[in-house]
Design a protein around this nucleic acid. Structure first.
Lengths: 357, 357
DNA sequence: TATTGCTACGTTAACGTTAATGGAGCTGCT
DNA sequence: AGCAGCTCCATTAACGTTAACGTAGCAATA
């Protein structure tokens, strides 16, 4: 079946002795076509295995029915889920997805933006590296709807969907305090992004509300930026190194809130080596609720980030913007994360309740 | 800068009083253009922020400079890494990447194949669901180079890049035997794919070489197929349930080889609940070397799958096929995985050797 | 000076599709 | 019978780009 080259509307038109336009309209379901003609065309299209050429279609329609997705790193489980969420929702509306990976590099990001521009994407969903703003300004300048994810660039006035990191960190910290922690430390990535600042703010708010001091050294930066093709266990490893230094302090914190669940892994190891118990000697709270976090020993209390929801919300914002045209007020949508309480902040619960299958 | 609509070659041609063709050739670096004219054109293009329209270019050239990537699930760390590997390599050669996620559904897969066909991708890299063959046959039928990843569909005669699962499972099993295991159990996904069969074969070969029996019940299937929007910890959870049943057996195996590192998580938990120690009471060997596996407690011995290498090899095969045209003999490329020996199969090594930073 | 050959550019056509417009043939009404 | 109005299809143009070919102008050569 269907060997050789691709058949076009013209081929079908020629064999049926019709005009190209008639064939086009017959196939696309427009009216003004006789029932018998339409059936004939459909049958012939089926017979030769006709596949419409999206390039030509997009060229004349001015829209490629494609969304550009620009993320920093798919090996971050949050972004992996985000990809799924966006892809599913986009495809449901007939859009394909062009994916670009920036790996936190401004240079790659600029090229990716340029590439989306050339491809005439109908919209873009972007996790910006949060350095330069210009590449994305150009996209909006020519009328490409753009939604920023996770990290806002307020200067652009674009739509934004993210998780409420301030609240997430607040919840995490407040939870630790409720469980008895009085001295708490935060381990965060060393990226210059709003995410981090928001979380630190949430942490400080919770501490302030409990009248707890936040001495210097309470917020520790974990070096994780990397442009290389990536030894992947980089993040746990770096967190492990930082945690080892932390554990050499004279007085140890009661709880540590880490910037992502990979960091918790490194911290777990450092604690284990020192013979310190979680949560007995130190509570640990993660960020992300990665697929493995529930099954760590002890299972990790963590702030669940609604990746799928963020993704589908972003798609909805694009669709809305495409339908309503430009000029819509930029919407900043913060989706609240939820704290998932597990064993790393409380007594290990006997799992014997779990039903046998 | 650069507001309003997009400028075209015609715009530039009009303001400079040149022909469209001249502008095109001036910008694309073709010769037969005077130095002064070229400079003029370049300057004007820069001034108005000209962005070439890939759609039009692709239409006339017949190639979209785009690769289609079809995977089952980006939350599988192997595929997350694969995406990175492919994207980087493809972009280095000027290709963009269209991503489709099938979630193991044949129906979605068929639609994805159709979508790639419509988009005139220059090539496709596919992790097939391994049900129907037809969608992919059509792609090859119209001359789209296609490389299959991980799961071969031999009927198609396409290029194939995968990991040598037989050898991987053999190594894992042989390693366990070398460490003293005599009774070994395999936990695998319940997918009808060659991957699983190959691994079971490798397992059996290692057992046979050591003259060890493989009684019924040595290969256990873990139900993981899911089409829904996916509770993500599904895989560890299912493995946990299966492991609980396993641990109720009268005699327990000395070692368990699991189909992916998520399964190891579930197994770890089940063992922990029974008070069984890894590796003392039971060795555990994973598959995948996921980012967290090195940092589990105990760290997980696992078969590292070269995802990045698989990805870049696939891209290279596509590029080669595009350069040489069709008719090249299909190449089946198996990349050997490497066993990473860690604590889950041997005595916990004191980590005090790790240098302080 | 006529011929050749080169440079630098313009003209035309094409890629495959959709939209706008036009027109032939039929039906129905007065 | 004449005309309007409808159905059904054809014609034309357009989207933005590249490729093939044509040609004017000039310098070098015979």
């Amino acid at each position: 079946m269907v060997e050789g080259r691709r058949h076009t509307l013209r081929d079908i038109a020629a064999t049926l002795d019709l005009s190209v336009n008639t064939v086009s309209r017959a196939l696309s379901g427009k009216d003004g076509i006789g029932a018998r003609t339409r059936a004939l065309v459909r049958a012939e299209a089926e017979r030769v295995g006709y596949v419409p050429n999206t390039l030509a279609r997009s060229l004349v329609l001015g829209s490629a029915m494609t969304f550009g997705l620009v993320i920093t790193n798919p090996s971050n489980p949050f972004y992996a889920q985000l990809i799924s969420g966006i892809e599913v929702r986009a495809r449901a509306h007939g859009y394909s997805m062009l994916l670009a990976v920036t790996d936190e590099s401004e240079e790659i990001e600029a090229r990716a933006a340029e590439s989306l521009l050339r491809s005439s994407v109908s919209g873009a969903i972007v996790v910006p590296v949060q350095g330069k703003v210009d590449p994305w300004r150009r996209l909006g300048g020519v009328g490409v709807p753009t939604v920023l994810i996770n990290r806002d660039l307020p200067d652009l006035g674009y739509h934004f969907v993210g998780t409420d990191n301030e609240v997430g960190a607040y919840q995490a910290t407040a939870h630790a305090i409720a469980r008895g922690a009085r001295s708490i430390v935060v381990l965060e990535e060393d990226l210059p992004i709003t995410t981090i600042a928001d979380r630190v703010a949430g942490f400080r708010r919770a501490m302030a509300e409990a009248d707890l001091p936040v001495p210097r050294g309470s917020v520790i930066s974990v070096p994780t930026r990397r442009y290389e093709e990536a030894a992947l266990p980089w993040q746990p490893e770096q967190a492990y190194r930082v945690a080892r230094r932390l554990l050499r302090r004279a007085t140890l914190p009661d709880a540590v809130v880490v910037g992502n669940d990979y960091f918790a892994l490194g911290l777990y190891r450092a604690l284990h080596e020192q013979g310190l118990k979680v949560p007995g000697d130190m509570m640990v709270i993660g960020f992300g609720d990665y697929p493995f976090s529930e099954f760590l020993l002890p299972s990790l209390t963590t702030v669940r980030l609604p990746a799928q929801e963020v993704g589908s919300t972003a798609v909805d914002l694009l669709l809305e913007q495409i339908a309503d045209g430009p000029g819509t007020e930029p919407r900043k949508q913060l989706i609240a994360p939820t704290l998932v309480t597990r064993d790393s902040t409380g007594p290990a619960i006997p799992r014997s309740r779990i039903p046998h299958t």
